[in-house]
Design a binder for these strands. Sequence first.
DNA 1: GTCTATATACGGATAGAC
DNA 2: GTCTATCCGTATATAGAC
Lengths: 214, 214
Amino acid sequence: MEKRSKKSQQENTKDLSAEEKIKAAARQLFTKKGYSATRTRDIAEAAGINLALLNYYFRSKEKLFDLIMLENFGQFIHGVRNLFNDKNSSLDQKIENLVDFYISQLIVNPDLPLFVLNEIRSDPKKLQARGFFRDILRKSYFMQQLVEELARQKRTDINPIHIMVNIFSMTIFPFAAAPIICYVGELAEQEFIQVMEERKILIPVWIKKMIAAK
Amino acid sequence: MEKRSKKSQQENTKDLSAEEKIKAAARQLFTKKGYSATRTRDIAEAAGINLALLNYYFRSKEKLFDLIMLENFGQFIHGVRNLFNDKNSSLDQKIENLVDFYISQLIVNPDLPLFVLNEIRSDPKKLQARGFFRDILRKSYFMQQLVEELARQKRTDINPIHIMVNIFSMTIFPFAAAPIICYVGELAEQEFIQVMEERKILIPVWIKKMIAAK
DNA sequence: GTCTATATACGGATAGAC
DNA sequence: GTCTATCCGTATATAGAC
């Protein structure tokens, strides 16, 4: 009993299954190098298993990729849906929560932004397919609160899309550009993370200034 | 005479050379899809020439790619070097010039950001190789002015790297995320461009607010 | 310089033994 | 379930005719 998960019954072997090892290796390589540049042989080697097993478990490279991609997208979106439609938090709180949530996620998975952006560009249909973003953002309670606040501050001159874009730009872009930032700023990995932690506090303050009356 | 360029002497044929057509097609495909996902056959077809010519002119796919990449990087950097070290412009003017320059460039070449970011991640050595960014940013006159201004505003609490990151984030990221923004905001291409044009004015204002004393 | 035809390599996928 | 050996399509690159 104990920690034995409720997976397939045959999994009474010792430890982490080959299937899981393949997925972990595939996630790392696909997320880092993209679909075309990743070879199934590399995945197999990284997973420490045989190439044939990959096809045994996942049928094809493409099927495996689709699986990873869905999980990556899900991870990227999950939580935002709830944060944005929480009826009990103020606009300011939502911004703080969102920025904190994203930065925390991206510190652990810094390759996600480029992966998602590349995927969407290479096949924009992925956006509609799941209706991933539209209702999450455009029709969200967050958007409603943002528009109201802009009206209260007499900032109807400013398109709310700019504010949305700025939140995501300042939060996500630094991770996509991490190698440049570390190189230019002469930052080690830990220092970079420290800078990103600072931004959890700073970005909401900056956004508030943008919205504030002139 | 007239418009005849001073290229190779044998180029006394009628119009745009095959070599140029290949480079143009290669730039478009490489920039859009990356190295691995682009096939030399596609380049040849897009250029309207035979596959063998590609190797005749450029020896190999990789050599051709390196050429395109260098030019893309150059285009991305060129101008910034001068803008940042102009002794005769104020900090505010530099920010305005930089944002205007980048957004104008990116409206024409919206695929450049992802291309550059992908290339750097896949091979961070490219950063050092040319010393592309370091002295342009860190040791620039712009950086000096920024640090001085932060001191004058009694904002020594804020690491200047944040301001740099914010300028580039707000300027560049929207182009990398263009498909998402257009989808969420229900923007046609022209409307997206219009929004980006607005940002030429807005971003410098926002940055000024970030630097301003509390 | 430009083409056709082809050599060569590589990567995804499968057959079949254990 | 896991391995070895191998097949086969595809993509790069070149040889050689014109």
